[in-house]
Simulated scan of single mutants.
Amino acid sequence: MRIVRHHEYGPPGVLRTEEAELPAVGPRDVLVRSAAIGVDHADVQRRNGTFPLGGTPLPYCPSTDVAGTVVRVGAEVGDITPGTRVVAWKAPNAYADHVAAPAERVLPLPPGLDFAEATLLGGPGRVAVNLLRTARFAAGETVLVHAGAGAVGHLAVQAARALGAGRVIATAGSTAKLDFVRELGVDEAVDYSLPDWPERVAAATGGGGVDVALNGIGGKRLLDDVRLLAPYGRLVSFGGSGGDAEHPDIPVLDLLGMRQVMGFSMPVVLRHRPEQAEQAVRDLVRMVSDGSVRPVVHARIPLAEAARAHELLEQRRSLGRVVLVP
Rank of each mutant, 00 (worst) to 15 (best):
D254S: 07
Q260L: 01
P274E: 06
A245S: 14
G219D: 14
A280T: 07
R294F: 08
V210I: 12
D225I: 10
G216P: 13
V212Q: 09
V285A: 03
L284C: 03
P251W: 00
M287S: 02
M262Q: 14
L229Q: 06
G291D: 06
P267I: 09
V268F: 01
D211E: 14
A277R: 08
R273S: 00
D224Q: 14
M258R: 04
D254W: 00
G240K: 05
D249V: 15
A245R: 10
I250C: 02
S289C: 07
R234Y: 11
E275V: 12
M287E: 02
E246V: 13
V212T: 11
L223A: 12
D249L: 14
G240N: 13
M258F: 01
E278S: 15
Q279N: 12
V212M: 08
Q279P: 07
L223I: 05
D249F: 11
D254N: 09
M287G: 02
S292F: 03
P248R: 06
G233S: 10
D244M: 04
H272G: 04
R282H: 15
D224E: 13
D290H: 09
F238G: 03
E278R: 15
R227D: 00
S292H: 09
L214R: 13
G263I: 00
R227G: 01
V236Q: 07
Q276H: 08
L284P: 04
L228M: 06
P267M: 08
R286G: 10
A230L: 06
P248H: 04
R286T: 15
G291L: 08
G216H: 12
G263T: 03
D254G: 01
G257S: 02
L214T: 11
L223K: 03
D283T: 15
G243N: 12
R294C: 12
H247A: 09
A213I: 09
G243P: 14
F238D: 02
V285P: 05
A245F: 07
R271K: 11
V236R: 09
Q276C: 04
F264S: 05
S265H: 03
L284W: 02
V210L: 11
M258H: 04
R227F: 01
V268N: 00
R259K: 12
L223Y: 02
A245G: 03
